[in-house]
Write a protein that binds this DNA or RNA. Structure first.
Length: 252
DNA sequence: ACCGGGATTTAACTTACATCA
DNA sequence: GTTGATGTAAGTTAAATCCCG
């Protein structure tokens, strides 16, 4: 399908040199002094107008039809083979640039992900430290009030034994003394009772403990302590409930 | 300002392979 | 199925050009 005047790409060098089809292609066989002269005339490189036309054509189609190639070559005063070679080289350069662009985009995406990963890692570390602190406080308080209750229980047992020895009736469980004056158990009572049962503590211990926990809690709930959680971080995602299972493991 | 040399750009070439008549 | 013409991608060459010390 070669057009008239075009040479096969696989032609031998000897054949090509014999087919000296333009001043620029003949250029390589000239002496250095003549090369210099031709160079001064800007003959080797295509002119700006030629390049502009070639670029414009390349934007519309990266592979030229033979007829368009002939037409373009005629318009630019080049050999069709020169146009063909220019398009070959242009495709190669374009592909190389495209690879660079793709690489740059991929690298940018990777850097963003790596940055997010590092940020989340720091948040996790910070949360683990806070969790450990809370755990320590809980252990300390639980131990403290368990002892207090044991002492109180011992005192009551001692009083009962004393009364029994003195022939007085043993103290019965008095609802009114523990849960309001009318003997009716209020919601607060139930609430405290549940908390006490759950934690194994009495009311005072529960209230005291809750104050401590709330104080610790405020450091978690105040925005200034959130760090980068707001910045497109985990707070913007609906957490999977199982993600927080370890929090409740702590309480059980 | 000039120079030398390494880096980059670019036109042209070579080779290997694919397609089609 | 084979062959020759033609086209392309990928890699190379050589000269021009750029850049920097």
């Amino acid at each position: 399908m070669f057009d008239a005047g075009e040479f096969s790409p696989s032609s031998s060098a000897a054949a090509l040199s014999a087919e000296c089809f333009s001043s620029s292609s003949c250029f390589s066989s000239l002496s250095s002094s003549k090369k210099k002269k031709i160079n001064n005339n800007n003959a080797r490189r295509f002119s700006d107008e030629q390049i502009k036309s070639l670029e414009t054509m390349f934007e519309t189609e990266t592979k030229l039809e033979p007829r368009k190639k002939l037409q373009l070559a005629r318009e630019l005063g080049l050999q069709p083979r020169q146009v063909a070679i220019w398009f070959q080289n242009k495709r190669a350069r374009w592909k190389s640039k495209q690879l660079e662009r793709d690489y740059s985009i991929l690298k940018s995406n990777y850097d963003n992900l790596a940055s997010q990963y590092e940020s989340l890692k720091k948040e996790k570390q910070s949360l683990l430290i806070q969790l450990q602190k809370l755990n320590d406080v809980m252990q300390k308080e639980r131990g403290k009030y368990c002892c207090k209750q044991e002492i109180e229980l011992d005192n009551r047992c001692a009083a009962i034994k004393k009364n029994e020895m003195e022939g007085m009736p043993s103290l019965s469980f008095d609802l009114s003394s523990q849960h309001g004056t009318n003997g009716v158990i209020s919601d607060d009572d139930i609430d405290s009772s549940i908390k006490a049962d759950y934690l194994g503590l009495d009311d005072d211990a529960v209230h005291h403990l809750l104050k401590i926990v709330e104080a610790e809690d405020s450091s978690l709930t105040s925005p200034e302590n959130w760090g980068s959680l707001n910045d497109d971080g985990i707070l913007n995602h609906q957490p999977n409930s199982s993600s927080y299972d370890h929090w409740w493991d702590f309480w059980s």
